[in-house]
Nucleic acid binder design. Sequence first.
DNA 1: TGTAAAGCTTCCAGAAGGTGGAAGGTCAAG
DNA 2: CTTGACCTTCCACCTTCTGGAAGCTTTACA
Lengths: 142, 142
Amino acid sequence: MRIGEAAEQSQLPTKTIRFYEKEGLINPAERQANGYRSYSSKDVHTLLFLKRARSLGFSLQECRVLLSLYRDRERSSADVKRIAKHHLADIERKIEELLGLKAVLGELVDKCHGDDRPDCPILDDLAKAGHDGVRRRHTMPR
Amino acid sequence: MRIGEAAEQSQLPTKTIRFYEKEGLINPAERQANGYRSYSSKDVHTLLFLKRARSLGFSLQECRVLLSLYRDRERSSADVKRIAKHHLADIERKIEELLGLKAVLGELVDKCHGDDRPDCPILDDLAKAGHDGVRRRHTMPR
DNA sequence: TGTAAAGCTTCCAGAAGGTGGAAGGTCAAG
DNA sequence: CTTGACCTTCCACCTTCTGGAAGCTTTACA
């Protein structure tokens, strides 16, 4: 089949399929006499694998490794699990970060009356000094 | 002061300060006779505003608007609140998405024994067909 | 005074993961 | 014979910086 049908069957844009080929995630597709790419249902299977892995948030680099493990009959599931755990930790870290943002921002939004007057706790927060960053305090806060 | 000191006081890299200038987030810095950029403590204040807004996850575009509102004495706090609420909703959406990923991935990781044998529920999941995507079901799931 | 290091300038490239568009080849239907 | 749907390649753009190269100025030190 040509790239359009592979795209339809894998539910990936043709652009993305060509991009994955350029990035070496999939083997360069064979070409028909006219230069068109040609795909097998096995290729579609690989594309679906990639689509699922991407939808779980794995990076292209991780996808590359996962695909090679998938194809390796001698693999250890430990290798797969290690990648997944690493990614899971990444996700959990991001969740924590976003929860922190949500808490701060939610409080600011709650405090802002949101009418036509100019005074605004949100801008006050952004403008105020002393958001503790990397710099160490030399005295303990009371 | 020169860009290096502004960078130290704002805790932003000089590269980032120049980038913000190029992007029009801050006014082009005045230049000394030798062409070096010159900053006032007011400029540092603006940089700190940007740093804080960025740390709360506002996009550069949002920062641009927030800064212009900050400088506008005739502003309505409603305008600020609208931006913040929009951003907050965005954060909450991302959290939900990541929680979904965490649930799926966490379950897969738990199911994988992670030893030197090749069979692996994670890869099985990636490879299996039927991850419901955009496509509509024509029959109800039981 | 010479020189080396630090700090400044501009410009270009790359990262991540695609997306959009232009210019042009190919093929089937009407 | 032309139209339209596909296909090809290549380049630019999105976001938010970050790194590096080439070259100028200033500062520090012997």
